[in-house]
């Protein structure tokens, strides 16, 4: 009893008490559903009833059926593409704010970058439909100027549209970690590189870029992980060729009435995301520690 009293007053107990609402919330709404999905993926749907005998058949289907392999590969391809575009566009913006904006204006620039968040993501998707559509802003302008005779059809309802829409949505999230990493680069190191004979481009690749890699990797993780499982963007602007694995998971849970297979697909996708996340974390550790 005395031990319990002592424990109750300890710092760790107070810490646990403080996080308990969040912890309870997370357990109830994240861990429990996740465990349910994992359990579900080892069962079988038998028309209206669930057969609860353990089976790996769903995973075998998920990993061998060409259609699922194809959709998984496409999801990976699209999210790698989105991540690459996002980071490549975000880096120069972050670099500009960190190196060329007066210190007292930096906060304002970061604030301006968050302005897109004032509009809901769904609204932004619909706006991209208006911009990219058959009778949309781009086609209207190009036909109006006489550059093209017929509206372009390859810009909406395909993978390009998914990449453009997702990249636009995620760029602010990528700018922030890269900006923070660049802010932490000691400017005297860049001067030292110049002093030792490197031109601007060479000192960027030998000093600035390697030292800002933790930010680049953080941005990559932040963009890559959510986009691989994105559901709403491919659904609204992807068309039939732009569908991704999450759309198939939804299909299995609903129309196809095969929740266990949907669960197996979901868990498989999670496994792949986890693998990539670990690779990024390993890369980050390498850059943070430097040569040992």
């Amino acid at each position: 009893m005395a031990d319990f009293q002592k424990w109750r007053r300890s710092e760790s107990a107070q810490g646990l008490f403080l996080i308990s609402p969040t912890l309870g919330f997370a357990l109830l709404l994240l861990a429990v559903p996740l465990i349910m999905v994992v359990a579900l993926s080892f069962w079988t749907q038998d028309y209206l009833t669930l057969d609860r005998t353990f089976t790996t058949a769903n995973y075998q289907t998920a990993w061998t059926e060409p259609m699922y392999q194809y959709l998984m590969a496409r999801s990976l391809k699209i999210s790698i593409f989105v991540t690459a575009v996002t980071v490549l566009v975000a880096y120069p913006v972050a670099y500009f704010i960190s190196f060329h904006v007066a210190p007292k204006r930096k906060a304002m620039w970061i604030f301006l970058i968050t302005i897109p968040f004032w509009t809901s993501y769904l609204m932004r998707i619909f706006l991209w439909k208006v911009i990219l559509g058959y009778n949309g802003v781009i086609n209207g302008t190009l036909t109006g100027l006489g550059i093209i005779d017929e509206p372009l059809s390859f810009i909406l309802y395909n993978q390009n549209a998914v990449v453009i829409t997702l990249a636009h949505a995620w760029i602010p999230f990528a700018i922030l970690p890269i900006f923070v990493a660049l802010e932490r680069v000691d400017r005297s190191l860049i001067e030292a590189a110049e002093d030792l004979g490197d031109s601007g481009l060479r000192r960027f690749f030998r000093v600035t870029l390697p030292l800002s890699m933790p930010g680049v990797i953080a941005a990559t993780i932040i963009v890559f992980i959510p986009t691989i499982g994105d559901y709403v963007t491919p659904r609204l602007v992807g068309g039939p060729n732009g569908l991704m694995i999450s759309n198939m998971i939804e299909l299995q849970f609903k129309k196809a009435n095969n929740a266990p297979l949907g669960a197996a697909l979901a868990i498989s996708a999670m496994g792949i995301v986890t693998f990539f996340a670990l690779v990024f974390l390993w890369m980050n550790r390498k850059y943070v520690r430097g040569p040992s």
């Binding site: 001067e191 030292a192 002093d195 430097g290 040569p291």
Partner: peptide, 25 residues
């Protein structure tokens, strides 16, 4: 003439040792 083309080299107050490189590098 930019700093990288001058026949001078500098020891910085903070030393400016590249943190991502070994001593030899």
């Amino acid at each position: 003439v930019p700093a990288n083309k001058r026949p001078t080299n500098m020891v910085f107050q903070s030393y400016a040792i590249f943190p991502h490189m070994s001593v030899a590098e």
